[in-house]
């Protein structure tokens, strides 16, 4: 909650790092953290969602293979897709948050080409016209 405080526009890097450490320390960390982050990313508060995306990106680089395996699953990718899709939360999500999610997903297709589910999800979004270029 501290790391994604919507009332503070700047990133609280100390707090984000503490969160990553907690994820690494707790046995359930890598499986629980993606769910917590997905919930925040789906927040109607733009600033909270943007902060949560920063925490997500930081965790992907700092929280090890198990966390990585979880975010590469449809179970997590679907939660990001819901924010983009007009059939779910896309109509009321902010353009800024949707653009940021698209950028994160695209970067993952580049950095993790071996993750076929990420590629499938991104290609589906392009096919459905939800992701343009």
């Amino acid at each position: 909650d501290q790391a994604t405080d919507p009332s503070i526009p700047e990133e609280n890097w100390e707090c984000i790092q503490r969160f990553c450490e907690q994820v690494n320390a707790a046995t359930e960390g890598p499986s629980l953290a993606p769910r917590l982050l997905a919930h925040k990313i789906q927040s109607p508060q733009e600033m909270e969602a943007l902060h949560a995306l920063t925490v997500l990106e930081t965790c992907v680089n700092n929280c090890g293979q198990r966390f990585h395996n979880e975010i590469a699953k449809f179970r997590f990718l679907n939660e990001l897709i819901k924010v983009l899709s007009p059939k779910y939360y896309g109509t009321w999500s902010s353009e800024k948050v949707k653009l940021r999610i698209t950028e994160v997903l695209f970067s993952w297709t580049v950095w993790f080409p071996q993750e076929v589910k990420i590629r499938d999800a991104y290609q589906m979004l392009k096919k459905q016209g939800i992701v343009k270029e």
């Binding site: 359930e28 499986s31 990718l77 897709i81 819901k82 589910k117 499938d120 999800a121």
Partner: peptide
């Protein structure tokens, strides 16, 4: 508890 290699998942959302 979640086994170390938990590869349970769901299908891709159809939108």
């Amino acid at each position: 508890t979640v086994s170390f290699h938990d590869d349970s998942d769901e299908d891709l959302l159809n939108v």
